[in-house]
Design a protein around this nucleic acid. Structure first.
Length: 674
DNA sequence: GTGGCGTCC
DNA sequence: CAGAGGGACGCCACT
């Protein structure tokens, strides 16, 4: 059996997209029916221009790279755009160009704050660098950002003028910081690499070496690093041209190397063309929307947590009989296991006695100090990671917090969130949830949270086709309770809280490829008992067992597994000489189709929700994504409509053999919305 | 920069 | 016999 049993029929527009993904002309048409209002506006009354084949002759080699090995792909020549005449000539050449490699050079890496220093463009036989704001003694006179953007705005914003770049979400941010919307994003080499070779590195230097045989100039080489780093605006224009023009050249050349490989595989073309490329502008929008934070509230919490920490610290020092740093695992280890002689329960990978939560929890049953350490850790974590940090992340210009979603990091297809990470805000404990109370709705609006219920288990039911599991979902049963009833041979109403908890651990453990040992540890039971539970589970849900075995076998045989939509995860470690690595790869193989299919579904839902908000000209904002949850900021007048439609879109985004269920909550803040 | 730990789904 | 739970990010200590 294949991991993907059947292609999932998709609703109208997605299906349309999927069928023709990878075909540029079709993609543009699809955006006309499916895409965002910005695209619609640009496309109105304009017949899509047929993409021309590139007709220019092979580019002459850059003199700098004349000694390159024959395997190396040819490079364009690199040149600097000079003066207003140069700018004008560039603008006219761009209007006539088909697909242009595009890149920006900026003042920094914060997407919401970065300003332009220069831009580069690769087409024909040349990659041009347009310096804008270089400033150093005897720097050449430059046209400047204002004049350049005024002249190039039409090309930059035009959807008919197609661009390719590496992580154009970032360049889009930078241009938006100057009031210019980057249109015509035809391709992104970061996303191409992510879809094609998710297990590899996706930075441009690695891509260039791998696909083109190019040894590229690194940013560090141009600007220095650490304390010696200089701003890009201080880089001499000639040197900046070598670096920046190469990036644009590289983006176009990489696209030409990777696109045929994607287009020749309909599944990859679909993941790229119907999921990754269209979700990118949605992420851009969400990042710019940001979320309103009650910073004063968090600062008050910080103050209280600080007082609690001091109290706990004093008690811990008294209990230990000496002062020590409670934040240092090394010092804790010395105090607990050397000075006090407590039993070592577990060791870290480096052979040191572990002091993690499990260990301290076990020791806390018999000794006072470990309990204090647990309390201290919990409080210190909340303070340092959340209540101290988040208020400092508020953007002075917008008064909101703007995360960045990394679209090409997680090998399963999930997003990652950073600066700050909004995907690990506490929820489990009451003290932790107080942090969510600080994610607030502005006056006149509400926070709406919509999350998929048990989505990975539903996907497991779909992928495995297991009748029992599907049955439980079809009947709308509490799936953990239903599992408990099966495993323990009880009627549903006789299942105890402990039995349900055990079943929940089994369900999640299976998704992660957990062993009897892991389950035993998780539930605090004997390993043999845990094994009996698992055996019972597999005899009641034989389809799941079959799916697990077949997935392992498929991963071993072909070296990859797939999501329902055809996203491919390569698992080179399946053939590792190390049994440990091999088994880790097997667990990843089991988990990836479920985690990855969920990621695909949520991304498709995000595309549909943003499209609908645009089409209906609503003022509601998508503000966060937390893997199986979408969070919106919704004006009260739109509340009823948005709640209903978001649920409908999320539930209808893909048709699995098991229904998707979405829970929607509303509140003044993120905590209340759950 | 690495290791240990803890937060989320 | 050891190790035995998928995917992330980020804080702190320590080198």
């Amino acid at each position: 059996m294949l991991t993907v049993k059947r292609d999932v029929p998709l609703p109208f527009s997605i299906a349309e997209l999927a069928t023709h993904a990878g075909d540029d002309a079709r993609l543009r048409e699809q955006f006309a029916t499916f895409g965002f209002k910005s695209w619609l506006r640009e496309l109105e009354g304009e017949a899509p221009e047929k993409p021309r084949a590139r007709t220019f002759a092979p580019a002459p080699a850059n003199p700098d790279h004349a000694a390159a090995p024959p395997a190396e792909a040819p490079r364009r020549r690199y040149a600097t755009v000079q003066g207003e005449e140069g700018l004008d000539a560039l603008a006219r050449a761009l209007d006539a160009a088909d697909l242009v490699g595009f890149d920006t050079e900026t003042t920094g890496l914060d997407p919401m704050a970065a300003r332009l220093v220069g831009m580069s463009f690769a087409f024909g036989d040349t990659a041009w660098y347009l310096p804008l704001e270089h400033a150093y003694p005897d720097a050449p006179v430059q046209v400047g950002t204002g004049k350049a953007l005024a002249r190039l705005k039409h090309w930059l914003e035009s959807d008919r003028h197609r661009k390719v770049g590496q992580n154009l979400k970032y360049d889009s941010h930078v241009l938006l910081n100057h009031g210019v919307r980057l249109g015509g994003i035809a391709h992104d080499t970061l996303l191409e690499s992510y879809v094609l070779e998710v297990h590899e590195r996706h930075d441009m230097d690695s891509l260039a070496l791998r696909h083109l045989g190019w040894k590229t100039i690194t940013y560090d080489e141009v600007t220095g690093k650490g304390a010696a780093r200089i701003p890009f605006s201080s880089v001499e224009v000639g040197r900046a041209t070598e670096y920046a023009a190469e990036d644009a050249d590289c983006a176009l050349a990489l696209h030409e190397a990777m696109a045929p490989k994607i287009e020749s595989d309909p599944k990859l073309a679909r993941v790229y063309g119907s999921i990754e490329l269209p979700v990118m502008p949605v992420l851009l929008t969400m990042e710019r929307n940001g979320v309103l934070l009650d910073a004063a509230r968090l600062e008050r919490q910080s103050h209280e947590l600080g007082k609690t920490m001091l109290e706990l610290e004093q008690k811990a020092h008294a209990s230990a009989g000496q002062p020590f740093n409670l934040n240092s695992p090394k010092q804790i280890q010395e105090i607990l296991f050397e000075r006090l002689g407590l039993p070592v329960k577990k060791k870290t990978p480096s052979g040191q006695p572990s002091t993690d939560e499990d260990v301290l929890g076990e020791l806390a049953l018999d000794y006072p100090l470990p309990k204090l350490l647990l309390e201290y850790r919990s409080v210190a974590k909340l303070k340092s990671t959340y209540t101290d940090k988040l208020p400092r992340m508020v953007n002075a210009a917008t008064g909101r917090v703007h995360t960045t979603y990394s679209q090409a990091v997680a090998v399963t297809g999930r997003l990652a969130s950073n600066d700050p990470n909004l995907q690990n805000i506490p929820i489990r404990t009451a003290e932790g949830r107080r942090i969510r109370e600080a994610f607030v709705a502005p006056p006149g609006t509400k926070i709406v949270s919509a999350d998929y219920s048990q989505v990975e288990l539903r996907i497991m039911a779909h992928l495995s086709g297991d009748a029992g599991l599907r049955h439980a979902f079809e009947r709308g049963h509490d799936v953990h309770r239903a599992t408990a009833a099966e495993v323990f041979g009880l009627p549903l109403e006789k299942v105890s809280a402990d039995e349900r908890r055990a079943a929940k651990s089994i369900n999640f453990g299976l998704i992660y490829g957990m062993s009897a040992f892991g389950l035993a540890q998780n539930l605090g039971i004997e390993r043999a008992t845990a094994q009996a539970y698992i055996d019972s589970y597999f005899s009641r849900y034989p389809g799941v067992k079959r799916y697990m075995d077949e997935t392992r076998e498929k991963a071993r045989a072909q070296g990859f597994v797939e999501t329902v939509f055809g996203r491919r995860l390569w698992l080179p470690e399946m053939k590792s000489g190390s049994p440990q690595r091999r088994q880790a790869a097997e667990r990843a193989a089991i988990n990836a189709p479920m985690q990855g299919t969920a990621a695909d579904l949520v991304k498709l839902a995000m595309i549909q929700v943003q499209h609908w908000l645009d089409r209906e000209k609503l003022r509601s904002l998508l503000i966060m994504q937390v893997h199986d949850e979408l969070v919106l900021e919704v004006p009260e007048a739109e509340l009823a409509r948005v709640k209903e439609k978001v649920r409908e879109l999320m539930q209808g985004v893909g048709t699995l053999d098991v229904a998707l269920v979405v829970d929607v909550g509303v509140g003044e803040n993120w905590d209340q919305a759950h």
